[in-house]
Every structure is written in C-alpha cells, then in structure tokens.
C-alpha cells in the first residue's frame, strides 16, 4: 500500500478539480409506479471523501445511485458529474452493482469480468492485449483474488464475487466510484479487503460513494453521510449529520428508540 504511506508522509493527495463536486444532483425525482421512489432530492458529493448513502429498505438508496448513473430515467432533476453532464463524463465513473442483481450462472470467468471494466478502452473490436490482461490481474491482486482468475464466476462465494466486482471497478480507473451495497452478505475477510481498497482509493484522491446498510460501521468507514427516506433527510460530515435525531428522522418507527440511543452513544 505505497499510496497510504504517501499520505502518512504528509503529502496531501491532490483532489482533482477541487472546485467541482464529483457528483451533484438537483431536484431528482424518480418513480417506478404511482409513488415516487426518490422525491426532489438534492445532493452534492464532496471530492476525495467517502460518503455513505443510508436509509431504510425501499428508501430509494439504490434508485438514487442508478439515476445518478443514468441506469434509470428520472422524472425530473439535473445530474452533473465533475461539473459536466453525465454523458460526457462516463469514463470517470466506476460502478459496482448489487451482487444479487446479477445472474452468476452466466458462462464467464473471473478475468473476463474484470476485463469488462476496460470496455471503454477496448471498444467494439479492439484486441485484448497482454497489457490489458496484466492490468486486470493487478486489479484482482488488489482485492486478493488473483488466484481465482480462471474460475467460472458461479464457483465463487458471495464475498469473492463481490471482490471480483470491485476489481472490475478498479480496472475502470475512474475518479468517482459508486458502489451499491458492497458489504451486503459478505464474510468478514471480504469486508476488510473491500474497505481497505476503498480507503486506498480515497488516499489517491478518488471519491467514493457507497450505499450502506450497516449503521454500526458508518463511523469507522465513512467521512460523510447522506440520509434518505424517499426525500433527503440530512447530508454532511458523520460528526454532525449521523446523530440520533437524523437517524430517528430517517428510520422513523422502524428503528427502535433504544437502538438509536445505543448507536448515538457509540458515536460520541
């Protein structure tokens, strides 16, 4: 982890284009049916930080992410990535979808999945060269999966699959990383591997946004939180925005008061 050492040396990582928010959203409303899944949400992700999107099930966390990526079409709202329209900045975004949304029986190998992250370089017919393969291998090494390169993806455990997806995102070599529930249903070793990689990305000056469900680890992992329950509840640094009051407002009755107090106690 030479990169982390660099920051410990006191060389502050250079936040690229510090003035522009990596992801800024205004007035975003998304609806799948009659009821909106995300309603009139504003968001301004801080550059070079790790932000958790937090909220109860069905609160629109994934939908917010998908709309930000142009995967689902919003009813209204503007999305800017590094100060420009999404369409022009695709090369600067990496995405890790929810593991459960994928058909893991698909006939492909681990290394092929990671190579998918190089699609924008390879294009339609560009040949996969040794440099591409080495790069994919290196990304697998960063997540501790280099020995599994030739395996069919269905033969992996859930945690291993998640790490392969992270390796694919690393291959994209982006400035903004968006991850949908990367810690859901993974083993402890995987959780540790993933958070280490994300922290090293932050040390490189990259911006990381994670849809997160485990309230207990928020303080350890993240700089900022974005609390959502269809509408935005709070946004900002963990210290000021991840409090008993904001959690109560986000989860309402779904989080027992005792639980909130306990969390808040742990936070302080």
């Amino acid at each position: 982890m030479t990169i982390e050492l660099a920051t410990l040396d006191g060389k502050a990582p250079q936040p690229s284009r510090a003035m522009e928010s990596p992801l800024s959203i205004r007035g975003l409303t998304v609806s799948y049916g009659q009821k909106p899944a995300v309603f009139s949400v504003d968001m301004a992700v801080e550059a070079g930080k790790m932000t958790a999107i937090i909220g109860p099930n069905g609160a629109g966390k994934s939908t917010l992410l998908k709309a930000a990526l142009g995967i689902v079409k919003p009813l209204s709202g503007q999305i800017q990535v590094f100060g420009a329209p999404l369409e022009r900045q695709r090369a600067r975004i990496a995405y890790v979808p929810q593991r459960a949304s994928i058909d893991w029986d698909f006939p492909t190998r681990v290394i092929d999945v990671v190579l998918m992250g190089l699609y924008r370089q390879l294009g339609l017919l560009g040949r996969v060269r040794n440099t591409h393969r080495l790069r994919a291998k290196h990304c697998l090494e960063r997540v501790g999966m280099a020995d599994f390169a030739e395996r069919q993806i269905g033969q992996l455990s859930g945690g291993q699959q998640q790490r392969v997806f992270l390796a694919r995102a690393l291959a994209q070599d982006a400035d903004l990383y968006l991850l949908d529930e990367p810690f859901a249903g993974v083993d402890a070793a995987t959780e540790k591997a993933i958070i280490n990689v994300l922290k090293s990305l932050r040390a490189e000056g990259k911006t990381v946004v994670v849809v997160h469900h485990d309230l207990a680890t928020v303080r350890d992992y993240f700089d900022n939180v974005f609390l959502i329950n269809t509408s935005k509840v709070a946004e900002g640094p963990v210290d000021t925005c991840f409090t008993a009051e904001t959690l109560q407002a986000t989860y309402g009755g779904r989080l027992a008061t005792a639980q909130v107090d306990q969390l808040a106690a742990a936070l302080v």
């Binding site: 998908k66 699609y119 924008r120």
Partner: peptide
C-alpha cells in the same frame, strides 16, 4: 451479463 453496468459504460 450485467445490463446496469453496461449502461454506465454508455
């Protein structure tokens, strides 16, 4: 394999 990811690639 992964329609959502494919869309993010354009």
């Amino acid at each position: 394999f992964d329609e959502g990811f494919a869309r993010t690639l354009g």
